[in-house]
């Protein structure tokens, strides 16, 4: 049951989106998100939506998966849209009891919903097309200027890598411990929330003990393989910008210019 959890939800592939340098993708995503909030007016939003659609098409990730990624936020989308409809002052369309829906409210609500949907869709596109390890590498690279301020960037990246490496191992272990406790009559399925949470204690305690033991052994094994922090370290796979990344950068700049221009037009 626990085996179904996949973190990062990476789908290996060979599309243009997969081949882009993870740093490019990460920066482009940040720019895109910022532009989503800068965009004003139908034309700008249309540009953002077209871009999102083109990116999804290029990634060859099944649209079904993108829709699946939207499922958890659907409540938030509806909630935000409704709040915007009700609480934006302006020309009244319908009113009942203490609520009144304004034209501006409908407009705002729809745009807010579209904004969140695109935000989530494009962000999940990043994790769908980038392996967690590449993403960690990209974050380490992008944050490396902070090393000068004594921020332990390499150590954070290492921790993330090890965490990712041990997720499947610990999930497997949790399964094993749960089976062992079930065999001795533990009941994880019945009772109210509090009781079920309590039933998890005999699973969590051994899991933590074993995780600490693993950490200890791993630390020794890492030292035996000469690990001594990030200093003087080389890498097997070095991130390299290619022509593809240059092209992507140009497109991102065009996109920013486009949104800024369209903002003016529609005002």
């Amino acid at each position: 049951m626990l085996k179904d959890i996949t973190l990062g939800q990476y789908f290996p592939g060979e599309s243009v989106m997969h081949r882009l340098d993870p740093r490019t993708k990460l920066v482009a995503l940040i720019v895109y998100v910022v532009m989503l909030f800068v965009a004003k007016g139908t034309a700008s939003y249309l540009l953002c939506a077209v871009c999102a659609a083109v990116l999804i098409a290029m990634s060859r990730v099944a649209p079904r998966l993108i829709l699946k990624s939207l499922k958890p936020v659907i409540v938030i989308v509806i909630f935000t849209a409704v709040l915007n409809m009700l609480y934006t002052p302006g020309r009244e369309l319908v009113s009942f009891w203490i609520f009144k829906i304004t034209a501006e409210g409908v407009y705002n609500g729809v745009f807010m919903a579209v904004r969140i949907i695109m935000l989530v869709a494009v962000t999940s596109l990043l994790t769908y097309t980038t392996s967690p390890i590449a993403l960690t590498d990209a974050i380490e690279h992008l944050l490396s200027p902070l090393k000068k301020l004594k921020v332990p960037v390499h150590e954070f990246a290492m921790m993330m890598t090890i965490a990712l490496r041990f997720i499947p191992t610990l999930i497997e272990e949790t399964d094993k411990i749960m089976s062992a406790q079930k065999a001795r009559g533990a009941d994880f399925e019945s009772g109210n929330l509090l009781r079920r949470a309590k039933a998890l204690i005999p699973v969590l305690v051994p899991l933590f003990v074993s995780a600490f033991r693993r950490a200890d052994e791993l630390a020794v094994a890492m030292e035996c393989r000469l690990y001594h922090g990030g200093e003087g370290r080389t890498r097997l796979n070095v991130l390299r910008f290619s022509r593809l990344d240059a092209a992507a950068a140009v497109l991102v700049i065009c996109f920013v210019a486009g949104v800024v221009l369209l903002n003016r037009v529609s005002l």
Partner: peptide
């Protein structure tokens, strides 16, 4: 399990 550090064999 406790001596493998990376998520890919060659890494």
């Amino acid at each position: 399990d406790n001596q493998i550090v990376a998520t890919v064999v060659e890494e």
